[in-house]
Design a protein around this nucleic acid. Structure first.
Lengths: 345, 345
DNA sequence: ATGAAAGCGCTAACAC
DNA sequence: GTGTTAGCGCTTTCAT
């Protein structure tokens, strides 16, 4: 398309307002140190010409991009079956928008993509990065660290080289798991099983730890490793039932897993919650509210996590700019979870 | 952060390779018209210095951004409860990545955001836009058209000024609906109800039209307007049942709605599919596979839609660059759907 | 085939 | 306060 008659430049506005480019620039960037009437004249010229600053030219001199990358590395399609992804993005987007910062989305799946992302980051296209690091052996955090791009992680990364300080925002997976299991205990349950998530993700490990915090050294057969999927949940539930027929409750690592477990329970003719109480994790609405019976589960404030990630990153960037001391580095944040009671436990 | 020792420039590479900046530029951009050995020397210098072109500087002169905006306007949180959003993005991302184009995500919710998006687009930050236009009265398409940014829509926009040609990618909602209803008819059902989606979205209208294509002027009480939500589905199902107790099948505008309907059916002691067969739309996995019974539904290839949107846009941009005639403008595409049979019908 | 030089549109010293 | 000026890093004629 004939890029509709190239847009007006600073120069044009300056001419129209009868001032210098510098003055226009000042006005456009906040207008400090420009006398009222002059500024007004400039603003009118801007208005009339429909002037919009050229970001490329600006970046070239300021060395800022006013853009941050959001990197979502998820080889599996799991994350895309997950509405949380969208909520998280929404939270991030809101915060970035409020700071006139653009969101560049980088989705990866596979090694080649990693190289590409590495190059992009190293290319200085963005001022910072927000990364969802989902697997323990993920090379991404290392690459990012090396690229020297300020970063905030979503979920505690299962990675640390001890020297660099990583900043992350996470839900209190362990605490939430404890609350879930305690709830079950409060219901009088004693044979409480746990279906874990994929243990190469810290969230799964933390939830397992929370379970153990409450159950101590309970019968180890009560814990079955799974993978956060409904099918995995079904399999694990069968195993659990075969191993421990006297089971009276299950804490599943997430709602998807729980839904699979519920199906097996129903299939075996066990009543929920009468025979076996079930608690999930996530409060993934389309799932948790639709199961039969609806799921008691641990809710995390996903959107808030996203917002916080963005806020921490932006604060870090501002700090850079204003040259504060390193001690002001933003700290990681762990958000509380809440138990949502429905019919399953 | 002390932006880790500012990155090497073209100049530096040129010096190291003992050539001019122009030559390095040529090599970096494909290397046409540069003799082999020289090019090789330059490439080595690039490698050694870890040179990455400064996109801002490049954009400044080329007037291309190698970035496109993805605009998702969804006032409701509905879209975020919807995994399709992610799939769509994945498709888009794959295609853009293959063309070295960045994805700038613009999420909007509310009028102020619209102005912001308008400004952004007018600012020439991106070469094109991919827009999910979900509501009939959405002002976004108009704004975009005015900004003169090449655009491809996701889903047929319920908007047209007759003069501008809009390019979109959509699923064959009408055809899919027809197939769903025909399937029900093939099952011997005669009293087939329809719970519509939000009728300010073309997808809902098209699905209703598909239903009517098959059912003709059936009892109008068989159609109940709803809103794509589970709660809406419940309400609509109750209405439907009260109005037409002899109902023997329901085609719901999407899976979420269907899941609500299923719940009401169960609550009323009606068996699915024996008493009432149910078909949904979307094949939203976490829902369709988890309902009791699992949902027969119409699947759309969401990821492919995304990929196609990006492809059409990029093709359009290339066309601009190569100055082909207007007749080569990409055309809209409607993707076929497929009926997925599960237990509910 | 390669190099020299002229900007792209903007900001930030520095003068006045 | 406001204007002048010197680049930011790159591509792209235009010479050679």
């Amino acid at each position: 398309m004939p890029e509709t008659a190239s847009r007006p430049t600073l120069e044009a506005v300056a001419a129209r307002a009868g001032v210098s480019r510098a003055t226009v620039s000042r006005v456009v960037n906040g207008g400090n140190g420009v006398r009222k009437p002059l500024a007004e004249r400039v603003r009118r010229a801007v208005e009339e010409l429909g002037y919009v600053p050229n970001q490329a030219a600006r970046s070239l001199v300021t060395k800022r991009n006013d853009a941050v990358a959001v990197i979502i590395a998820e080889p599996e399609t799991r994350i895309f079956a997950d509405p949380y992804f969208g909520l998280q993005l929404r939270g991030i987007s809101k915060e970035l928008t409020a700071h006139d910062t653009q969101l560049v989305l980088l989705l990866t799946e596979g090694r080649d993509d990693y190289a590409r992302v590495g190059r992009y980051l190293a290319g200085g296209h963005v001022d910072g990065a927000l990364v969802f690091s989902l697997h323990l052996d993920d090379p991404l955090p290392g690459m990012i660290q090396r690229a020297g791009v300020p970063t905030v992680f979503g979920g505690r990364p299962g990675w640390s080289d001890g020297t660099h300080k990583v900043v992350y925002v996470d839900s209190d997976n362990r605490g939430g798991a404890r609350e879930a299991v305690r709830h079950l205990v409060g219901l009088g349950r004693t044979r409480i099983g746990h279906i874990t998530g994929a243990l190469d993700q810290t969230s799964a490990v933390d939830r397992l730890d929370g379970y153990r915090d409450v159950m101590g050294d309970a019968d180890p057969r009560l814990v079955v490793e799974s993978d956060f999927t409904p099918a995995g949940g079904e399999r694990a539930m069968r195993t659990l039932l075969d191993r421990c027929p006297d089971l009276d409750a299950v804490f599943a690592a997430n709602d998807l897993t729980a839904s699979g477990a519920l199906r097996v329970l129903r299939e075996r003719g066990l009543r929920v919650p009468e025979d076996v109480a079930v608690v999930g994790f996530d409060d993934m609405l389309p799932v948790a509210e639709q199961t039969e019976p609806p799921l008691t589960t641990v809710r995390q404030n996903i959107e808030e996590m996203g917002r916080l990630m963005a806020r921490l990153l932006l604060r870090g960037l501002d700090r850079d700019a204003s040259g504060e001391t390193v001690d002001d580095l933003p700290h990681s944040v762990v958000l509380p979870t809440t138990l949502v009671r429905r019919a399953s436990a």
